[in-house]
Design a protein around this nucleic acid. Sequence first.
DNA 1: GAAATTATGTCAGCACTATTGACGTATTTT
DNA 2: AAAATACGTCAATAGTGCTGACATAATTTC
Lengths: 175, 175
Amino acid sequence: MTSHAAAEPIRTAITDEDGIDFAIIELFFFAYRDFTSDPDQILADYGFGRAHHRVLHFVNRRPGLTVAELLDVLKITKQSLARVLKQLIDTDHIVQLQGPRDRRQRELYPTAKGRALALALARPQSRRIHAALEDSGATERAVIERFLEAMVNPELRAQIDIVPAKMSGKSHGDH
Amino acid sequence: MTSHAAAEPIRTAITDEDGIDFAIIELFFFAYRDFTSDPDQILADYGFGRAHHRVLHFVNRRPGLTVAELLDVLKITKQSLARVLKQLIDTDHIVQLQGPRDRRQRELYPTAKGRALALALARPQSRRIHAALEDSGATERAVIERFLEAMVNPELRAQIDIVPAKMSGKSHGDH
DNA sequence: GAAATTATGTCAGCACTATTGACGTATTTT
DNA sequence: AAAATACGTCAATAGTGCTGACATAATTTC
């Protein structure tokens, strides 16, 4: 049998020459890794993980969203959410209110405690972003925002636009 | 203490007005989520996870790196790497060679099979990036690269530069 | 009003990725 | 010879995700 059990090692590095954008792929990995490392340390003090952060974030961003809406945004299952959400409720970071129109629904709202934690988690991330944009003007910022948005699946881009990016009035729309 | 068991719900959304850059924080989350979803589907066919992808990626990017170097790049522990690496070796995606200078070290190299899988995983990600940069020129690309690099911890930025971003010759340097 | 559907909660079990601690072995350095 | 290093491995644990099944309350449909 000439079939060496061990296949031949390839000694040359994979590079962009293969038509693949490894530069940005790798940058994205490192950037996100460090981006999430800041809040991770704070979360550890609470015995929370990244899942808690995400829930807390979106409940603060869209107070009153229902469990189903949250599942849709996070793209996880009900059972995965359950544990995390229960902990956040038990620790008074989030409260549930019965839906006004449909009483089966539970609208999720942050408490003052939950709002404070969300801000504390976002602060180092925002600081990092500001530092990265240090010498950048509005133009560069727009380029980056457009790029990130374009990286999101088109079908899901709607989720982003729901967020009150600029609410001058307090018109809640049709909710 | 008037401690009502249920804390008051906050009904207003958290916004950038708090001095926090929620827009980019959120975009970054969605972008990375979808960015990783493409390879995740391919990996599922192999019974692999994201951890396998990361190992495979860096072994292809820096053939011959040692286990210790890999741990340093991934920022995980030896034990976490062990299973994943073993699987990749058992399935002939990666081979280990004894270090030439220090025989305690195991240099990691991709096989042809491992190289092919790394490319297959990178392809949809690269396609997504290209689509996102569709109408962008070199300037915009540079802005985005600079931003992503600036998001990485300064101490760790060295790891990125190690990567052969532009190798015209095949001079391996001092390795 | 009864039946079907919907929104949510929960239980049980499983998989993957990560963690820490401890120990063994081969090899290099001191 | 002793200490330090690189790596592998065993055992136990945590966090987060999954699927399937089932219960309850409320709404919608017939």
